[in-house]
């Protein structure tokens, strides 16, 4: 059976006009290697640059009409 790329355990999903959804066992670190505080398993990473809680998404991409 072909491996199903839609069922990857660790993945970044590029949401159209929105954030990068990070699901799985990947650490988010600062440039110094310290872990970025994380309160949930699956997180949304800002892609539009306008979030007030970077590196996480706060939904602002919708307010600024971000397209990707």
């Amino acid at each position: 059976m072909e491996p199903d790329r839609k069922s990857a355990d660790n993945a970044i999903i590029a949401c159209p006009n929105g954030p990068l959804l990070l699901r799985g066992d990947v650490e988010i670190l600062t440039p110094d290697g310290d872990p970025v505080p994380r309160n949930r398993k699956t997180v949304a990473l800002c892609r539009c640059g306008a979030s007030s809680i970077k590196p996480y998404c706060d939904g602002t991409h919708k307010a600024i009409g971000f397209r990707a």
Binding site: I13, A44, Y56, D58, G59
Partner: peptide
């Protein structure tokens, strides 16, 4: 504060 971050995740999962 929690919902700002959480629901930015949830809305993507919920819609798609």
């Amino acid at each position: 504060d929690e919902h700002v971050e959480a629901d930015a995740v949830h809305e993507q999962i919920a819609a798609r």
